[in-house]
Design a protein around this nucleic acid. Structure first.
Length: 456
RNA sequence: GUGGUUGUAGCUCAGCUGGUUAGAGCGUCGGUUUGUGGUACCGAAAGUCGCCGGUUCGAACCCGGUCUUCCACCCCA
């Protein structure tokens, strides 16, 4: 055997069974998106670098796959730049395009570019692959699918309520019960930072706070101190570390912490509105949980922040995330356009469903009936019957080669084909079909119409 | 990007402290007179032991690099 070919790290091939399973998830999500009134769009797999660079922070820029210019790209690099070996500067000269990193920024670009054709509020969904030059881990790939639903052009909090409902609807439809939808609000985080005198260190503060359940209270405090947050401020945070209980009790606790911060109070109001909406409307299988340590996507989120955790006992990073971004289209020059959206991590959801064995048995499509090949004369008659079966919506096929019957039966077994038709010399003469049920082993001699009836 | 980990037939793995022609199970293919299967029996094919280089009389095994796997950090779906 020659040297084995391979695929780049963090990418995957999908076999027929895997594709079927993934399509099942896609279709379920898509159906709910449409039921909720979202419309599909697609954007190119690569964008101008200038569209993407700088939108995800320094870390994000590093993880964007850059596409090398065509032609003699080095000719644009002068000797001085070349000798300096400054990767960042050289990159901007030799690469002007980059692979899509997420679906939100391209969507913002889309909205700005097509603002005159769009009827606002615009509810769009988008299911496409994205690429990140990350180091792969379990559930972390360099090419993966995101399923995004966003609304732009409305700052109504009913949208947030709707997105919580949408998460619940999708995960319920997938029979993935007990997911936790965590919610937080950027304004609360800003408010806390304000109260403890660390407005200018919001990101450092939240990054540290985000690690609370992972590294514990003490280490979080140490990290905050290290980032220059004063001890007096950290002391004020004390009630936050022991924040527990229901949505309502946590809100009360937050009110007392944030009573001096206007922004913080605004955040609390927003959370209460969303929570009240959800309490009244109810959720099918998901739980909504306030989590003040949740701090994702702060580079652009301005209000609500969402993250979905798999049901307890499943070891997996978040399977969904999202939030409100008042200023997103602002970076592309369109002011005062508020947006809010959520994302489903298809690949991780697939891993979780696999883990919990939640895929329906019927997801894998296989042909319904295989005709055994006994030679060209018989095959011709078989093909006529197959053509009629197909015209009637029955998936059927002929084994292409006149191999030993035992081989043909083995093939049917391996492909999980439920029915086999034997059409040999005697059937040809009597104008009948011997239909065998491969599960039960039963077989009977039928006319075409009887066979069609049995297979439909 | 940092630190660690993994890599032997299609798949899952074995291979003792480096020593002659690298093994097993499953799968594949062929056969048990090409009209009946998923279970039986017989037989066969299949590996530059991830790749490159080094140490050694000799390396799947030791050393270095590189790629890959998985994990932690970072970040994130």
């Amino acid at each position: 055997m020659a040297q084995k070919p391979s695929i780049p790290k963090g990418t995957r091939d999908f076999n027929p069974e895997e594709v079927s399973k993934r399509n099942y998830i896609f279709n379920t999500i898509k159906k709910q998106f449409e039921i909720f009134g979202f419309q599909p769009i697609e954007t190119p797999s690569f964008e101008n670098s200038s569209t993407l660079m700088g939108k995800y922070g320094e870390e994000g820029d590093r993880l964007i796959f850059k596409i090398l210019n065509s032609g003699d790209f080095l000719s644009k690099v002068d000797d001085e730049l070349y000798t300096a070996k400054d990767s960042t500067k050289i990159t901007s000269r030799i690469s002007e395009k980059a692979l899509r990193y997420d679906l939100t920024v391209p969507f913002a670009r889309y909205v700005v570019q097509h603002q005159n054709e769009i009827d606002f509020p615009f509810k769009r969904y988008q299911i496409q692959p994205v690429w990140r030059a990350d180091r792969p881990q379990k559930g972390r790939f360099r090419e993966f699918f995101q399923c995004d639903a966003d609304v732009v052009g409305s700052d109504s909090l009913w949208q947030e309520v709707e997105f919580v409902q949408l998460y619940d609807a999708v995960f319920s439809a997938l029979d993935l019960k007990g997911v936790t939808i965590k919610i937080n609000n950027r304004k609360i985080l800003s408010g806390i930072a304000e109260v403890i005198g660390a407005q200018d260190k919001l990101i450092d503060f939240t990054v540290a706070l985000d690690k609370l359940d992972k590294i514990g209270e003490e280490k979080v405090k140490i990290e905050m101190l290290g980032k220059g947050i004063p001890q007096s401020g950290i002391d004020k945070l004390q009630p936050l570390f022991s924040l527990k209980g229901s949505f309502g009790t946590q809100i009360e606790e937050l009110k007392s912490i944030l009573n001096t911060s206007e922004e913080g109070k605004k955040g609390i109001e927003e959370l209460e509105f969303i929570n009240q909406g959800i309490e009244t409307l109810g959720l099918k299988t998901a739980n909504l949980q306030l989590d003040v340590t949740l701090a994702r996507g702060l580079n652009y989120y301005t209000g609500a922040i969402f993250e979905v955790a798999a049901p307890e006992g499943v070891k997996m990073g978040s399977i969904g995330g999202g939030g409100r971004y008042d200023d997103l289209t602002g970076i592309f020059g369109l002011k005062d356009m508020s947006g809010v959206g959520i994302s489903f991590g298809l690949d991780r959801i697939a891993l979780v469903l696999e883990d919990l064995d939640l895929f329906p048995e019927t997801v894998t499509n296989t042909v319904n009936v295989l005709f055994i090949n006994f030679g060209d004369a018989e095959a011709m008659v078989s093909m006529k019957a197959i053509k009629q079966l197909r015209d009637n919506g029955v998936s059927a096929e002929l084994f292409p080669d006149n191999k030993k019957t035992i081989k043909q039966f083995n093939y049917a077994n391996k492909r999980n084909i439920p029915f086999v038709v034997l059409l040999g010399e005697s059937e040809m003469h009597s104008n009948t079909f011997t239909l065998k049920n491969m599960k039960t082993g039963d077989q009977e001699s039928l006319s075409f119409d009887e066979m069609l009836n049995a297979l439909q």
